[in-house]
Computed example of a mutant assay.
Amino acid sequence: MQLGELEKLVLHYLWENKSADAKQVHAYFEKQRGGSYNTIQSTLDRLYKKGLLSRYKEGHAFQYQAKIERHELIGQLINSVASDFVAEGETSLVAAFSSISNDLNVSQLDALELMIEKQRLKLEQESK
């Protein structure tokens, strides 16, 4: 999945603001970077069709919310890129994570270790 620059910005906005309609999003970005209301509407619709936003009708307008958490999207994007380069069962992806761990501090490594342990326990429970 590929995301345009405005799509990324809109996702960040909705992660911070939880819910907004096209007018609210446009008002925010008009101050920040300009652009038309129609461009914002189209961007919201594209993100909805990509499954990244949910929406519900409130009055005459849709209210949009992020359907996916930031960390989940990052995982999907990593998986999408990795699948182009890593064969099933290959350890290149693990090696890639190991190489970027040089950029992590001790607390980030501790958090990663905790997440790995939780995932390991979850997989063990599912296999029982």
Rank of each mutant, 00 (worst) to 15 (best):
K57P: 01
Q41G: 10
T39Q: 07
N79Q: 14
L114K: 04
W15A: 01
K122N: 13
S107Y: 12
D45W: 02
S101P: 02
L77R: 14
L3T: 00
Q76E: 11
F29Y: 04
A111M: 14
L93Q: 08
A22G: 13
G59S: 12
N38Q: 07
Y48N: 02
K57E: 09
M115E: 14
D21W: 04
A66C: 03
K50T: 00
D103A: 13
T91Q: 15
H12L: 14
V25H: 02
M115W: 08
G75L: 11
G35Y: 12
M115A: 09
G4S: 12
K118L: 00
E117Y: 06
S80K: 07
D45K: 15
S83G: 13
G89Q: 01
S83V: 09
E5C: 13
S99V: 02
G89Y: 05
S99M: 13
Q65K: 06
K49D: 06
Q108G: 02
T43W: 00
F29D: 07
S80W: 08
T39V: 06
Y13R: 01
A22W: 09
E124W: 06
Q24D: 10
F62W: 05
R70P: 00
F85A: 13
E117G: 04
S42I: 02
M1K: 08
L121Y: 08
A22P: 09
A20Y: 15
K57W: 04
K50N: 00
L6Y: 02
T43D: 01
S36K: 02
L53R: 11
R46T: 05
E69Q: 12
E58L: 10
L114R: 05
K122M: 14
A82C: 03
N102A: 15
M1C: 01
Y28I: 03
S36T: 08
S80R: 07
L77T: 12
D103E: 03
S98V: 11
Q32F: 10
G4E: 01
D110L: 15
G34F: 04
K122L: 05
Q24F: 07
K49P: 04
Y64G: 05
G4T: 14
A87W: 05
S36C: 07
T39H: 04
L112S: 08
A82T: 15
Q119A: 03
D103L: 14
H60D: 04
L114G: 11
L112Q: 05
N38M: 07
A66N: 03
I100P: 10
F97C: 05
Q76M: 12
Y28D: 14
R46Q: 05
K122V: 07
A20M: 12
A82W: 03
A22R: 10
Y56W: 00
Q63V: 08
V86C: 07
D84I: 11
